[in-house]
Design a binder for these strands. Structure first.
Lengths: 208, 208
DNA sequence: AAATACCGCAACTTCGAGTTGCGATAGGGT
DNA sequence: ACCCTATCGCAACTCGAAGTTGCGGTATTT
């Protein structure tokens, strides 16, 4: 479509946009870390961004779209993908990295929002899946290398191993609400490694 | 205190209470399974319970207290505590039992609510902790018996083992949103057992 | 059958989501 | 430097749900 009424014409002052957008999204995340999704009001976000409520509604359809956008900006995390040439340390570093992001202020706000009532919004459910899928995709090579080095059984399923590594961390953070730190990460790494070495994380073998 | 104005007098028609209370709490849980915590309105609950909104507010301070009560009625779960005289089957049965309650309609509503914005309510955070603590307390003997039988290393930490057993189930249900069934339970049991047998779930040994 | 505790009803107040019209403003092209 | 226009601020709305209040009706127990 794109009518393109008069491509030769002048005047397209689209300069104020990005600044406002960034300020509002930052304010949204700040409000999420402060009071959570339920306590997030568009008015408070606007005030914090130094902007009027109407401006927010001109750029975002509703509160939910705003939150979706704000979370979307903060899932493109930079995951190191360690390569220490030893499974123990690689797994430990992966687990510690996860703990760092999950216990950070914004990380906690992000995951809490994604598990809050906002889950009813399909886009947010998608974001939640992508959040872990990204991490999974970038961490798979670490496991593959360990298998190639012969440190893990040949049939080891990278995804199963990585989920086994992450699960206890999420569990303690979300369910039992224990304090999660490097020790938790190291324990998780030790458990996952033991299970993998015992062949409990192998791909399901097809029946002969 | 209890003034007890005239204990000899007659007429104390306190009969209508329990019926209303039960109806409202059931309606609350039904609304939670239907639309979640955010979509729960007192008016809808009242309608479903065949009761007027005012009546609800006469018995509960606000929406949150109502939800706290409704969830509280449904955490006194009946957990079997299997005893098959073999760790493999005991663990498998524990995991399967967890999967059953978590994938049930009310079970999902309960856990979703406890992770929703209602977490800001301290009572609900307490309930969430108690929810797993109860299960932990009743399952500990199962592990203790396995250790006594020599099926698990002497220093095995029951709580660590049970958390390792439960974590992947919660994880797949809450984070990756995979389908969770008996296979998931059996996999979790296999992984936890392998880790325990490798001594990765021993109590932290004091330094000599 | 009568007394009392409980409930239904309607009419409030308050607060946040989301909308609208108008006037002010800032940034880009010339 | 100047104008043009997209964008923003402001105020005044509608709407729905939380929570409250006073009055009159109903059920339950003795």
């Amino acid at each position: 479509m794109e009518p393109g009424p008069s491509p030769s014409d002048r005047a397209r002052p689209v300069g104020r946009g990005p600044k406002v957008r960034a300020a509002v999204l930052a304010a949204t995340l700040a409000e999420l870390t402060g009071g959570g999704y339920a306590a997030l009001t568009v008015d408070n976000v606007a005030h914090r961004a130094g902007v009027h409520k109407t401006t927010v509604y001109r750029r975002w359809k509703d509160r939910e779209s705003l939150v979706v956008d704000a979370l979307g900006e903060h899932i493109a995390a930079d995951i190191p993908a360690p390569d220490t040439h030893a499974v123990e340390t690689d797994l430990r570093e992966l687990a510690r990295s996860l703990v760092r992001t999950m216990t950070g202020e914004t990380g906690q706000a992000v995951i809490a929002t994604m598990l809050s009532d906002a889950v009813r919004v399909p886009e947010i459910a998608d974001l939640r899946r992508r959040l872990f899928d990204d991490r999974l995709r970038r961490s798979r090579p670490v496991i593959a290398r360990a298998v190639e080095r012969g440190e893990l059984p040949a049939g080891t399923d990278p995804d199963e191993l990585l989920k086994t590594l992450a699960a206890p961390i999420y569990f303690r953070l979300l369910i039992t609400a224990e304090t999660v730190d490097e020790t938790t990460a190291d324990d998780a790494a030790r458990v996952a490694l033991a299970a993998a070495r015992a062949g409990a994380l192998n791909r399901p073998r097809e029946k002969p």
